[in-house]
Computed example of a mutant assay.
Amino acid sequence: MKAIDFSEFGDADVLTLVDAPDPVPRATDLLVKVYAAGVNRADLLLRTGHYGRPDFGDSHLVGLEIAGEVVATGADVVGFKVGDRVMGITGGGAYAELARIDFRMAMPVPDGLDYVHAAAIPEVFVTAHEALINLGRLQASDSVLIHAAAGGVGSAAVQLARATGARIFATTEAEKAERVRALGADVVIDYKNEDFAEVIEKATDGAGVNVIVDFVGAPYFARNIQSLGYGGRLVQVGLLAGGKGATIDLERVLYRHLQILGTVMKSREQPVKHGMVARFRDFWLGHFAGGHLVPVIDSVFPLSGAADAHRRMETNDSVGKIILKTD
């Protein structure tokens, strides 16, 4: 099969199209003919040596997110059969014509969705649900601040918050504001020219928001704490700007009864990941078939153009997901 691999850490040019052996499904695996694969920030971190190893642990090939057709099933697989259209999260190996996936990390492709749009769902929407609903406990009466709202997880989180009925504050760049507003944000904050803590202070008359979902890290931490109301929950999903040097007002945490929670899917134990996928599937999967939730696509590249797809993500100009499509 054709696949994307790299032999040394480096810039996007190290990604090359190679001939690779077909993956061998284990007892709990589906073997999937991949029609589309999602590009994730973790792929860039892997490629540049951030994790200190050249693979995600389950395959020496790049990629964590697929959509395609089941071509074989392991002996212990339940609920899937050959010919099913599936999407899901792998332990690596998504940038390929064939991939294996634990059946408990797979979901049916919703009716009416093509493979490109299906590949834009699993990683970002599962992460968004975990942050907003499972950990953040967002309710219809709540208000929420979603940072990096034009990104993959951010755009998914805005849609889930809208579907929940919450009031949504969202940060992004001015040129992406209309796209974020169209997803359902009530107040869009230009993070380059506005202080989000000041905007929230004024808009909520000092009450603050109930939930914050943050991907940025240390530079936002103190202002996130400042922006939370009584009983508020800060869910830290990423550290795009680093995690060192953050300061914290412990008195505010104490007297406002605040909670600070962190979540990362990739490093969790497999049963925990199964639970994340199941919670999202049971809660939201039916909303895609009716068009109530829509995966946001920024751009589509051929599998052989994986380097260009990585360069696109590195510009930080994208809105929604970047997808690789096989021939």
Rank of each mutant, 00 (worst) to 15 (best):
A157S: 13
R162P: 07
M276T: 09
A99H: 05
G262Y: 08
A306V: 01
Y220K: 03
V300M: 00
E130L: 15
K202C: 03
L228H: 08
T73G: 06
A96N: 01
S304A: 15
N193M: 10
V158T: 15
R41W: 01
V216G: 00
D58M: 11
D111N: 12
A246E: 06
H117Y: 08
A3N: 04
F80P: 12
A161K: 08
M1D: 05
A99W: 05
R223T: 04
I212E: 04
A157C: 07
G305M: 00
Y230R: 13
S155L: 10
F288I: 07
E198W: 03
E8W: 05
L44Y: 01
Q236N: 15
D22G: 09
H257F: 09
E251N: 15
D84M: 11
A27D: 11
L160Y: 04
A182K: 13
T247Y: 00
Y115V: 02
G286T: 05
V319M: 05
G217R: 02
R41Q: 02
P302W: 00
D317Q: 09
V180S: 07
A197L: 05
L46S: 02
I322W: 00
E178Y: 05
L258Y: 10
E314M: 13
I323T: 09
L254Y: 12
P108V: 11
R268N: 07
E175S: 08
N193G: 12
D29P: 15
G242L: 05
S155E: 05
G291C: 09
H60R: 10
A3P: 06
T127A: 09
Q270N: 11
G154A: 12
L132R: 08
P271M: 12
G74Y: 08
L30N: 01
R100H: 10
D186A: 06
P219I: 09
V24P: 03
Y115A: 07
L64I: 15
A148Y: 04
D29K: 15
A161R: 14
R311P: 01
E178A: 10
K192P: 03
G10Q: 01
S227Y: 03
F221P: 12
H147T: 08
A174C: 03
G286M: 01
V144F: 10
L31V: 07
D11V: 06
S143I: 08
K192S: 10
T204H: 09
G38Y: 08
E123P: 12
I248E: 07
S299M: 03
K81M: 11
V126I: 14
